Simulated scan of single mutants.
Amino acid sequence: MKTKHTNKEVLVNGLKKLAIALLYMFLGPILLHIAFSNQEKPLYIPILIVGLLICFFAIYMAFRGLKTIIDSMFNSN
C-alpha cells in the first residue's frame, strides 16, 4: 500500500499563485476607487476597465491557487 504525501513543489507553486491573487485583490479595488472618484477625467473608462480586469484576474488566480494546493495534497503522482 502506497502512502500519500504532499508534493511540496506543487504546494509552493499554489502558495505563489495565492500571493499573486492577494496582491491583485488589493490593487483592483484601489484602481476602481480611483476611477469612480474621478469620473469627469478623460482616463475614467480605461482605469475602470483595467480595475475590473484586475479584479477578475484576482478571483481567477485565487481559484487556481486553491486548486493547485488541493492537487498537491490529494493527487498521487
Rank of each mutant, 00 (worst) to 15 (best):
R64K: 13
I47Y: 03
T6V: 15
K4E: 05
N7S: 02
T3G: 12
K4Q: 14
N13A: 13
L32G: 11
S72F: 06
L53A: 09
F57P: 00
F63V: 15
L31D: 04
L43D: 15
L48K: 13
L32Q: 14
D71Y: 11
N38P: 00
P46I: 08
A62S: 12
F74I: 05
L11D: 08
E9Y: 01
T6S: 05
L27E: 05
T3H: 15
F26P: 00
G65E: 11
G51C: 04
D71Q: 15
D71L: 13
L66R: 11
N75E: 15
F36V: 14
K4Y: 03
F56Y: 11
A19W: 01
A19V: 00
F36R: 13
Y24D: 02
L31I: 08
L43P: 00
N77K: 10
V10C: 02
K17C: 07
S72I: 04
A62K: 13
L48I: 07
L18P: 01
G28H: 05
I45R: 07
I47F: 03
F63I: 14
F63E: 01
P29Y: 09
G51F: 06
K8R: 10
P29M: 09
L53W: 01
Q39K: 15
L22K: 02
L22Q: 04
M73I: 11
M25L: 15
I45S: 06
A35E: 08
N13F: 10
V12P: 00
L66T: 14
G51V: 05
K41I: 00
L22D: 07
A35T: 04
E40Q: 15
P29S: 10
A35N: 08
H5T: 12
N77S: 07
N75M: 13
M73N: 11
A35C: 07
L11G: 06
F26Q: 02
K4A: 09
G28K: 07
G28I: 06
L48N: 10
I45L: 13
S37V: 01
F63D: 03
N77G: 10
L48M: 14
A62R: 12
A58V: 01
L31G: 15
K2E: 07
I49C: 04
F74K: 08
L18I: 12
V50N: 02
F36P: 00
I30M: 10
L18Y: 07
K41Q: 11
A58W: 00
A35R: 05
L66N: 11
D71A: 15
Y44G: 04
N77Y: 06
K41A: 14
K67W: 09
K8D: 03
L43T: 13
L43S: 14
Y44K: 09
L23R: 04
Y44L: 10
I59D: 01
N13T: 12
H5N: 10
K17R: 14
L23K: 06
M61A: 05
M25I: 06
V10E: 12
K8G: 00
S72C: 05
N7L: 01
N7I: 06
V12W: 03
S72N: 04
F63C: 09
L48H: 09
V10T: 15
T3R: 14
L11P: 01
M1P: 11
D71M: 12
L22F: 10
K41R: 08
